[in-house]
Computed example of a mutant assay.
Amino acid sequence: MEYRYLGKSGLMVSCLSLGGWVTYGGQVGPEIAQQCMKTAFDLGINFFDTAEVYSGGQCEIDMGVAIRKFGWKRSDLVISTKIFWGGKGPNDRGLSRKHIIEGTDASLKRLQLDYVDLLYAHRPDPDTPMEEIVRAFNHVINQGKAFYWGTSEWSPQQITEAHAVAQRLNLIAPLMEQPQYNMFHRDRVEKDYLPLFKNFGMGATIWSPLASGLLSGKYNAGVPHDSRLAIQDNAVMKRLRDGLDSEDGRVKLSKVSNLGNIAKQLDCSTAQLALAWCLKNPNISSVITGASKPSQIEENVKALRVVPLLTDEVMASIEEILLNKPASDYNFRSS
């Protein structure tokens, strides 16, 4: 396993991590979640990601049970959770000081932990003043309930404002952003966030590196019954599933098929190629993967050996297929 610094901090996270969105507490039961987390840990993954909203808090519960069951040394783990959607009450959502503090306490109780390493603002909250948000996350850190705080799917302008508030008040600024990033979703990370990486030393822990499985090639011939897109009671999965029949969906499936040809040349799977492509980006601290089976984690970790194979020539061949490189002067670091 490779470990990378989380932005400009001294904290090291595994470049591949395991997240619980959709899967733990929802798609699979606690026993499978435990097996997956143990497999990940045994393979060197130290970063596990969840959120208060995942399966109504059950994901945090299942992950917490696994951590206690295996008796892992706390310093060997990097645990993150995210605050925004905590319930149906008027103060159970958003980034008010009240919800940030109470939501964090509730998450820690479900996780059975004294603290999380990383605490994210799961979405921006235009209804709460930025000073209140920054002060609240600093309070949580000062109380020892989190070590670092960050954002998820915030705009560059919002993140810049948070940094300005923190600098003005001599407070801790957000260290990391958790955006969606994959071969089909690139602009924000490869273009919009470049000033944040350069000026603030922000780290990025990206989600959906396989575009909810699309980039694995598993949907080239339809939707398998045990796949993520087959989940019926999830609005996001339904939208993605319906999109496969659109013109854009068919174009993407064709591109995935062509990417599969490159993967064959490199003696790897299409999923491993897509993960390695994300890891190639030097601004990515960790690629958050999902898994409903331990075997999927074992296969995902093999993407590490593919990264050195992504030469400039191979990367150029990938770009010829994707045809979506953002208009910027950004380039991946050569091997």
Score class of each variant (00 low, 15 high):
Ile133Asp: 11
Ala303Tyr: 00
Arg74Asp: 07
Ser96Phe: 09
Pro179Asn: 07
Met37Ala: 03
Lys238Val: 14
Val189Gln: 12
Gly144Arg: 09
Met63Gln: 12
Leu18Tyr: 15
Trp85Tyr: 11
Lys302His: 07
Arg93Ile: 03
Gly217Thr: 03
Ser334Lys: 13
Val53Ile: 15
Phe197Ala: 02
His122Ala: 09
Arg68Phe: 14
Gln272Ala: 00
Ile284Phe: 09
Ser75Asp: 13
Gly64Gln: 06
Ala164Arg: 14
Ile61Val: 15
Glu299Gln: 15
Arg333Met: 12
Ala316Ser: 11
Val287Ala: 07
Leu171Gly: 08
Lys69Met: 11
Gly10Thr: 03
Leu214Trp: 00
Asp245Ala: 15
Glu313Arg: 14
Asn234Leu: 03
Gly213Asn: 02
Arg135Met: 14
Asn182Thr: 07
Ser75Leu: 04
Trp277Pro: 01
Gly201Glu: 09
Asp127Arg: 13
Pro156Lys: 07
Val13Tyr: 12
Leu309Ala: 06
Asn261Arg: 14
Val256Met: 02
Ile172Pro: 00
Arg188Gln: 15
Glu102Asn: 14
Lys280Tyr: 00
Phe48Cys: 06
Asn234Ile: 10
Asp125Leu: 11
Ile262Gly: 00
Ser17Asn: 06
Val223Trp: 12
His185Trp: 08
Gly10Leu: 08
Gly213Gln: 01
Gly94Val: 05
Lys264Asp: 10
Leu322Pro: 03
Gln178His: 05
Ile45His: 05
His122Glu: 09
Tyr54Ile: 02
Ser107Leu: 02
Lys82Val: 05
Thr311Met: 05
Leu244Thr: 04
Asn281Pro: 00
Trp85Ala: 01
Ile67Glu: 07
Ser96Trp: 09
Ala271Lys: 01
Gln265Gly: 10
Gly222Ala: 04
Pro209Arg: 04
Pro326Ala: 00
